[in-house]
Nucleic acid binder design. Structure first.
Lengths: 343, 343
DNA sequence: ATTTATTATGCAATCGATTGCATAACCGGC
DNA sequence: GCCGGTTATGCAATCGATTGCATAATAAAT
């Protein structure tokens, strides 16, 4: 038999209303009563039933977080940022993954709203915003993170993917590497699209013609990076550099270069997007575009809480964070190392 | 104005009880009524209020999951396994991270039980089980994952860390490498303890004296692996091999070996624990002990659901999964590669 | 001493479902 | 036409809180 607020009322000799007010620090309660009730609460080990409370207040102090996958470092670093910020403000996080499948995503949203999350933070999968129309009309605030959706305005936190890419590719060009390959993902995803856009812009900026033969699109995963790097390496006229659009494609590409031994024959100037725990160990890239992943999460959390608390009510806002650019002058250049002692 | 079950009752010309029974597929409801009510539900876009339902049924269909950190691949692969299994069975996942701090962990547990999670899956942080005594006495089922706690029996899913380590170290010894260093973590954590135990056993099995000078304890993180590898490398009499107790320490150790250039001077036979997405790219290890992380998660989910549904009631059970052992005969051996063309 | 203002507390409705028990409706059997 | 037996549905209590409104108690004012 769990102890309820009513029990506390009884043993304290007051009404349930009074106990409830003590719990919510209502200033109308006298100091004496407050102390007495608090003492009984402490003795009895009473704990509020948040479910009952939520039913009445229509707030759950819970924010839903949906990412394409759980086991990806970028998404989970964002999640950590969200969680830290939420916890600091007394909120919980209900989490789910969509597997990059819009149908599963919809299902997750449906289930979360049924559980009355106060707000939803979503890293959406590919596609447009039409599937979110219903959600948008509901009372549940939404913040899009990392990726935007065509034809859908909502609060959002993103980084400037085009600018980050453009700057990195430009840097390579300024060092005289003009033939830069591209390993990206489906342009149905805004980040993939924007990174491609930045790549194109860099070419335009430098008046360099873009060779479509060395532009490859995959799906942001390791196998894809592996396969595309192989295609690139198989070209008769190899690229001098390669831009690789995310961490996992970089892992795959690196794996190919190492396994095939290609790395001992050709020295690609690699740019990779995302700085993760393994990045300093792989060291094949000359340039790394980094994202403030935790800050993205923290920003999204602050944004959603602003809506939830009604502190912010106007039209959707977008928070755009900048990317970093790290040069690895100590990057491997295995072939030169190997050749140095030898030749 | 949200539509409630009562509204559906009214427009269908039946009582709320009947609608509720339709919703739960009660066989006593006649086909005609069922169809009529379902039609009204569909037209109106009615959706049950899970909060109200939970208040009455005392079940939330939600399982809490607490891990030391969110942004670690192992934990999140487990989480993905948990989530997939839970979703397949109609359950949600409330997630939180303890930051390896028992106080935060307790707080998370407290908050989750206040939200009436039906069960709790916990990857605990260091320390003993006393802090969980209260939880254990409550009605909330608990499954410990990955790590066990001294003096605390509960359902659990773990891998055989000692055995996995022992076999790997033994393999190295059989290849003639008898001086094997150890880079591990605090023995307050059961996995760290067990991996050390396996390392010791391998020595005993082979009648090899263990040199405490090359046994180092850190904290499972990258910086720690980096620092300990440096210590090991600084020894006058270097080890022939090194066992590194988890992925992040391996990353750190690898980073040190690469940055310091040590890798070009000495060829450590490395064993690393955990096979992660970056593992095939790093390729410094000769042997990798792998864990079935998703299966751990899925197993934990099944275990907790068994308790939640009351299908399983007896004393605590432990599910112990085996580890894999992968040999990388193509592992880097950079120094030999460099020397081959040269010398 | 009576009225007015102020402060502290209680009453009772409410949030939106579920469910044990009662009952109405219908069936065939005699 | 009455009765026991199903079958389908409704009544009303309940889960554990919150909160607007009423009121009791006390203090202040006249």
């Amino acid at each position: 038999m769990t102890i309820t607020l009513k029990d506390i009322a009884k043993i304290s000799g007051v009404s349930a209303a009074t106990v409830s007010r003590v719990l919510s620090d209502d200033p109308r309660i006298s100091g004496a009563t407050r102390e007495k009730v608090l003492a009984r609460i402490r003795e009895s080990g009473y704990r509020v039933n948040d479910i009952a409370r939520s039913l009445k207040t229509r707030r759950t102090n819970t924010i839903g977080f949906i990412a394409p996958l759980l086991a990806e470092e970028f998404f989970m670093t964002v999640a950590q940022g969200v969680e830290d910020e939420l916890r600091a403000q007394g909120f919980h996080m209900l989490i789910a993954s969509s597997k990059e499948d819009p149908r599963i995503e919809c299902e997750c949203i449906e289930l979360m709203t049924r559980r009355w999350v106060d707000g939803l933070i979503l890293i959406p999968c590919a596609g447009d915003g039409s599937r979110l129309a219903r959600l948008a009309k509901s009372r549940v605030p939404l913040v899009l993170v990392d990726r935007l959706l065509k034809g859908f305005r909502a609060d959002a936190v993103v980084v400037d993917n085009a600018q980050g890419t453009r700057r990195a590719v430009a840097r390579l060009m300024e060092r005289g590497i003009t033939r830069v390959g591209f390993i990206g993902a489906s342009r149905k995803i805004s980040t993939a699209r924007d990174r491609y856009r930045g790549y194109v812009q860099a070419h335009r900026d430098h008046g360099i013609a873009l060779d479509p033969a060395i532009v490859k699109f995959g799906d942001f995963h390791q196998e894809s990076g592996y396969g595309l790097m192989r295609e690139l390496a198989a070209m008769k006229r190899p690229a001098g550099g390669v831009f690789i659009a995310n961490h996992y494609m970089y892992l795959g590409a690196a794996q190919y270069l190492l396994e095939s031994g290609n790395i001992y024959r050709h020295d690609y100037a690699i740019i990779n997007f995302d700085e993760m725990s393994a990045t300093p160990v792989i060291r094949l890239a000359k340039l790394t575009v980094s994202q403030p992943s935790r800050e993205i999460g923290a920003g999204a959390a602050r944004m959603i809480l602003g809506r939830v608390r009604g502190e912010r009510t106007g039209p959707p806002e977008t928070l755009t964070l900048g990317t970093g650019l790290v040069a690895h002058d100590d990057a491997y250049s295995l072939n030169s190392m190997i050749n140095k002692p030898g030749a």
